[in-house]
Write a protein that binds this DNA or RNA. Structure first.
Lengths: 177, 177
DNA sequence: TATTGTTATACTCTATAACTATA
DNA sequence: TATAGTTATAGAGTATAACAATA
């Protein structure tokens, strides 16, 4: 079972690499004389570059964190558990915008890998408190470092002040739009 | 069959509304005393707000363009056809990052709705040149206006200069990262 | 009666292999 | 042989309904 998940992550990373290469090739052919199609006005609608940037960032994140076999979604769960101990499944899932039924299988994977554990709440025996294990904390610590390299490369591309501005605008859109 | 697609778009729009309301409720409870979970360091990784912003923008786009029953992906196809006449399926799909096998069903939908048409190329009888129909141009024209309102609301939120900077950074990430 | 975790299920997206008809 | 469009298929992601245990 752990192998299935490992394969899923590896395959996602492999696909990410393929897409990157295809894009790189496009840029090269644009430089020469092969005539790529024009996005035109489409590139002026925020949704188009936003979606493409999101795919690119997730691709790169996946590749950077591949040694630890963590998807962006799994990383976000571990980060949230670390920061918010003593919370139940519903609270964690809801904060991340994951529907409760879909969070079950996600937690099954993380728990089967020994990264977190479900514990019956003493107060409310319906609830499962989700806790990070020592292994989970260790893996998260290493994941943070790999993800930090990914972020550093982005900062290199945009510049530190621009990256901060980007982060602020994206957060504003996510919470206020 | 057209009904199936219409339902799919309607349902996506309905879900978008639900998510917006849930998020609005969260903000309200944050304001009062219900104690939402802390994203913490997670919010400092670009991927997290980027993904949430992308979902929000697509939600809003879907709602704004709902009268015309167009998804962001369908809109992008029509925009590309309008700007790049005489291209075949492979070229259009590749430019949008859509895999050729997946583009077949997508075009089937647009063609069955009378928005575009496949024409055998005279030069290379393997190719299908994809053309916008008059109806397709008409629908696209109206879609552009609805989408422009959506964009205007975003500009209102961020400010015109900031929105331009955001667009530039997202495009840079999509093409250079 | 309402809520938590869960199962079952379905629909969309995305990805690969392989076929056909052309080149 | 190679390419364009297509089919079949499989895997993620995301959505809803309903059930058991508990409140």
């Amino acid at each position: 079972m752990a192998d299935l998940k490992a394969m899923a992550v590896s395959r996602a990373a492999a696909n990410a690499v393929k897409r990157s290469r295809a894009a790189a090739k496009d840029l090269a052919t644009d430089g020469s004389g092969e005539a790529g199609l024009q996005p035109g006005e489409l590139a002026e609608f925020i949704g188009y570059p936003l979606k493409r940037a999101q795919l690119r960032i997730f691709e790169d994140f996946l590749r950077c964190v591949a040694p630890l076999q963590l998807t962006p979604a799994q990383f976000s769960v571990l980060m949230l558990l670390d920061r918010n101990p003593g919370r139940n499944q519903t609270e964690i899932a809801h904060t991340l915008g994951i529907l409760r039924p879909n969070f079950v299988a996600m937690l099954d994977v993380l728990e089967s890998r020994g990264l977190c554990a479900r514990m019956r709440s003493a107060n409310d025996r319906r609830s499962h408190i989700v806790v990070l294990t020592d292994k989970g904390r260790s893996v998260l610590s290493r994941a943070r470092k790999l993800a930090a390299k990914h972020e550093a490369r982005l900062t290199e591309l945009l510049g530190s002040a621009n990256r901060a501005a980007l982060l602020a605008m994206l957060s504003k859109i996510a919470t206020e739009f």
